[in-house]
Amino acid sequence: MIQMFHVYKIYPPNYRAVADANLKIDKGEFVFVIGPSGAGKTTLLKLIFGAEPPTKGQIIVDGINTVRAKTSTIPLLRRRVGFVFQDFKLLNHRSVYDNVALALEVLGLKKKLIRKRVLQVLKQVGLLNRINAIPPALSGGEQQRVAIARAIVNDPILLLADEPTGNLDADITKEIMKLFKVINSWGTTVVIATHNKNLLSYHPTKLIVLKKGSVQGVFVSSHKNSGSFVPQNVQ
């Protein structure tokens, strides 16, 4: 699903946010990218999403080389990928409903169909009672769940979630992680960036440890979805 070859991201003037990243994430995996603040987790996800071009290296997502692809194919890729942004990126003047519906509007779906699907997803994230509110009127955790709803509303083949539980309490975190697990069980590849080690109890198939822009290690769980997660260093 995702392959990275010697990927560098150097922000001007000379800051290495990601250095020589080589990664392979298979279809259907449930992956954590973990590391301290400033390690380059967000940058890594943005590189996969094509929101930032790499300074060097090649990235292949769902068979598309995002570095070499024509600009017109990037939107097509994004329609199949969901992204939960760390800063949510919600439209503050639009209702919760409109924010989530936006991801389906760009697909040109029928209004009725959009409505059905949006309500379904808002129910899953527990926001059915807030559909007409605007994001500034929501709590941080509620906003985060709107961002999650928008990312999964179009049944993506790949879900990139940047600190998706950063603003959620333990109970809601549990709910959301369960939701991600369900989505993953339906075949969506899930990549979650977090600095919260507690999330490791949710059994990733792969754990990518980042530190100061470089991949410190990639750990693969011995048994997929087994009760106990035993990381092993493969690098």
Partner: peptide, 8 residues
């Protein structure tokens, strides 16, 4: 944001 959700 429209670009981020895949609008052409």
């Amino acid at each position: 944001i429209m670009k981020l959700v895949g609008a052409s």
